[in-house]
Amino acid sequence: MKYAIIGFGKLGQALARAFARSGIEVSVATTRDPQDFAAVAAAIGPGIAPATLTQAIKADIIFLAVRFESHRDVAKALANWEGKILIDVTNAYGVPPEDLGGQPSSTVIAQAFTGARLVKGFNHLVAGVLDQDPAIQGGKRVVFLASDDEAAAGEVATLAENLGFSPIRLGGLAEGGLLVQARGNNWGPLIFKDLVKFD
């Protein structure tokens, strides 16, 4: 299984550090030349591989960690995303609901990434919190996942566990997904909730 993170700002770097802590290799890409951020990737860990967008989209599971407004630019990189699991880490805060056709932002992204198996996840925590070790006082930091594809959600839940998090599945995008999505200038009720699960 190959992994990639598209977007290497604060959120992308926080995700990369989660991979580095767990010793799992991941490609990181932006629309820029990989040499532009190679030093930052190297500082995070040896398993963090700078890549071009063309290289990164060859991964099986891809984190979309760009600004919501930039998702269509990334979607153009492949005519068909069939076989890929796309983890939507974006937040459409400030985007008028009418611009989304009244749909959840993840549904709009799923439509742009034709054929992708989309899972909303890892977006409810700010980068500074996601950046921290998820192991806390004997518990694990929670990440919420929502998807209309149960099998894809299951694969992402396994990855979340391998990265040290405790995944909680919220159901489909139109139900549970709305709990972790911005609507206009309002945040979903689970956004920013920093929870820890103890076994």
Rank of each mutant, 00 (worst) to 15 (best):
A116M: 08
Q132P: 04
D33Y: 05
P46D: 14
E25K: 12
G115R: 11
N123T: 05
A160F: 07
S147P: 11
A29N: 12
L11E: 14
A79Y: 03
S105V: 06
T30C: 04
G171Y: 00
A110H: 05
K76R: 14
F19S: 05
V129S: 07
L125S: 06
D73F: 05
I48N: 02
D133V: 09
A110T: 09
V26N: 01
A127I: 05
G101S: 14
L53E: 00
Y93E: 14
N185R: 06
K84V: 00
Q55H: 11
Q35D: 14
F68C: 08
I6T: 03
K120Q: 11
A127F: 05
A51Y: 08
S166N: 09
G101D: 13
K2W: 08
G45M: 04
G12M: 01
A75I: 05
Q137D: 15
K84E: 08
I5Q: 06
R117D: 04
I5A: 00
A116H: 07
F198Q: 13
M1Q: 15
I85N: 00
A182G: 04
R169Q: 11
L64H: 03
R32A: 13
F122L: 02
P97D: 05
W187E: 07
V143E: 03
N185Y: 04
L173C: 11
P97N: 07
F122P: 00
D99V: 05
E25M: 11
L125A: 08
A157R: 02
I57V: 15
Q13M: 15
A20E: 12
V74T: 05
N123I: 08
L64C: 08
L130T: 04
P34F: 14
I6E: 00
G184D: 01
Q137V: 06
Q103L: 15
A4M: 02
R67C: 09
T158A: 15
D36S: 15
L195S: 06
A146V: 03
A41M: 05
L11H: 13
A146M: 05
A59W: 00
R141G: 02
L64A: 10
K197M: 12
S147H: 12
L130P: 00
V95N: 14
L125E: 01
A14E: 04
V143H: 03
E82A: 15
A153L: 08
T54R: 12
A18D: 09
L78C: 14
V108I: 15
D88P: 00
G154A: 07
F113E: 06
G176Q: 01
V40M: 09
V108T: 15
